[in-house]
Amino acid sequence: MQFGQLLEARAGGLYSPAADAWIDSRRPVERALITHAHGDHLGYSHKQAWCSASCAPLAAKRLGAKVQLHGIPYGEAFRMGEAWISFHPAGHILGSAQIRIEVDGQVAVVSGDYKRGRDGVSQPFEVVPCDVFVSETTFGLPCYVWPDPRKEGERLRAWWRSNQEQGACSVLLAYALGKAQRVLPLLEGVEGPILMHASADPFVQLYRDQGVQLPPTERATAERIKQGVAGAMVIAPPSVQNTPWLRKLRPCRLAMASGWMQVRGVRRRMGYDDGFILSDHVDWPELLQTVKDSGCSELWCTHGFAGPVARYFREQGLKAQVLAADETRLEME
């Protein structure tokens, strides 16, 4: 799959021949363009990497000092080989970007992960007109229609309060970077400590360093847990489920914050006590809207339900293709 010199789908991932750079490459490469600081987009051991200025401190935390990292302000185009490159807010997490590649008046946009709704924490999504649009399709089925996050926030606070009344600790499972910070403003208004798991805690500070307003939090160290966590809200990554660490928080109630919580079967299979439908990805209506807004003539689909989404748009007359045959669903947000 190829779009002129702009973009090419190769076995190793997305590559721009004009810029001689790889996008969100998981393998080490000479020149990497990075949409956002989640592990599956970041890769490792690249020689040089470019990302948005806001993403850079988060990416640096994960990539280490060996990678030569360039943080570029949103909207600022720079020359790379034959191409003009710029980063535009994607609304997924703090610093997340769509990567715009322009060569001879033709434009490709790689969305990375994105959402349209505002979460009050990450920079809101911007529409970037283009010829070829590479869109994530993690939740690309019409059953995914997000409820108003303010309503889910209300439910979340009510859940916390009711657990407090029963003297239990509330454990909210959320991805360490992005989701864990994004849920924090939703917790404001309830009296009680908010404890961050060690994997999520450093990113809270990095968010605050960029001026994001978040309620006070503490780190959930072993000593802090020993002091008692009844009535507290603990934010931890999903991997803590069924671990001794989680057992130390008992009595506790376990809930997950994820778009997957919209499907009852998934909710039941995962064995959480509760689920909150809070996603950092586009839902079905947002996906349709974004493809339309982009004005693209060609759509490349990746992640999740790429097959059905591509078929749907083909039937709508768009040239739509699946980027990678790898069809792993239910990946965590």
């Binding site: 089925l141 059953c143 499907v263 079967g265 059905p308 078929r311 039937e315």
Partner: peptide, 26 residues
């Protein structure tokens, strides 16, 4: 009603695993 092709409704049903829930969601 949702202007969806029937195959996509089927595909969604397969994912949701419950017809009542799938149709309610759509």
């Amino acid at each position: 009603a949702q202007e969806l092709p029937l195959w996509l409704v089927e595909e969604t049903y397969e994912h949701v695993g419950d017809l009542a829930e799938c149709l309610a969601a759509l």
